[in-house]
């Protein structure tokens, strides 16, 4: 693959094929961990690390793995890396570990990672797959940070509060709105998550109307289960 295409592969995940906003996959961790910038960023980085590592390993092994049992093989590789990330966070960033809680082991069923393994890493070389992993992971992180910003500023009035991996212990955050109005705590709760996600996605639809292919429906491209659907008949439609 030439130089130009490599950059495309890297940038695809950021905007044109943003996993969360355009492909609509990986919705559970997006909604659950975007309550503040810190947890969203931590989740994004953890998922990116798993995604890049699993993409590299799967693309290196894709000639050896038999086609029929590829999904269980992919899941094993991904689960291994998730366990490594889990143990690292528990040891070095315990505050983030407890903030992410259940959603950390659930990275293993994050459709983004299995979807990229199935759609990209099992068909492309090691370097391209690593770039794809970085691009998709950064797109995921970027979305989480944007949603985390909106929810944190509206919900608690501050921005960037948190321990930040122990670098800024007990940082209270930049008071953007808290001086003027009390926080709308509904934004950090469940309905606020759905609402902010809807608004951000609608904004992306509005600004990219003609430039990129918007999927108004849940398509097969981002679906990790596309390989399971017989005769091109999608069960999710």
């Amino acid at each position: 693959m030439e130089e130009r295409k490599r950059i495309d592969v890297l940038l695809n995940g950021l905007i044109k094929e943003n996993p969360v906003l355009v492909l609509v996959i990986g919705t559970c961790p997006t909604l659950a961990t975007s309550t503040s910038v810190e947890t969203g960023f931590g989740m994004g980085l953890a998922a990116t690390a798993v995604l890049v590592c699993s993409n590299i390993v799967i693309s290196a092994l894709h000639n050896i793995i038999p086609d029929k049992v590829r999904i269980p093989c992919f899941i094993t590789v991904i689960a291994g890396f998730v366990t490594i990330v889990q143990m690292l966070l528990q040891a070095f960033v315990p505050s983030l570990y407890s903030a992410l809680g259940l959603y950390l082991p659930l990275i293993v069923v994050n459709c983004i990672i299995l979807g990229r393994a199935e759609m990209f890493a099992s068909k492309n070389g090691v370097l391209d797959s690593a770039l794809d992993g970085i691009g998709m992971g950064l797109g995921f992180t970027l979305t989480l940070v944007i949603m985390g910003t909106i929810r944190e500023v509206l919900g608690s009035g501050t921005w960037l509060a948190g321990d930040w991996f122990g670098l800024m212990k007990g940082f209270k955050g930049i008071p953007l709105l808290s001086r003027f109005i009390p926080g709308m705590s509904i934004m950090t709760m469940v309905p606020g998550g759905f609402f902010v996600y809807a608004i951000v996605m609608a904004a992306v639809h509005y600004f990219t109307k003609d430039k990129s292919k918007i999927r108004n429906e849940f398509g097969c491209d981002g679906c990790a289960n596309a390989g399971n659907c017989a005769d091109g008949e999608c069960t999710q439609k």
Binding site: F194, F195, A198, M201, A203, H205, R215, N216, F218
Partner: peptide, 14 residues
């Protein structure tokens, strides 16, 4: 138009 498809479903869920 911008809300067609997934966004309106999310609003409903909210």
């Amino acid at each position: 138009e911008s809300f067609r498809g997934v966004p309106i479903v999310l609003i409903t869920a909210a």
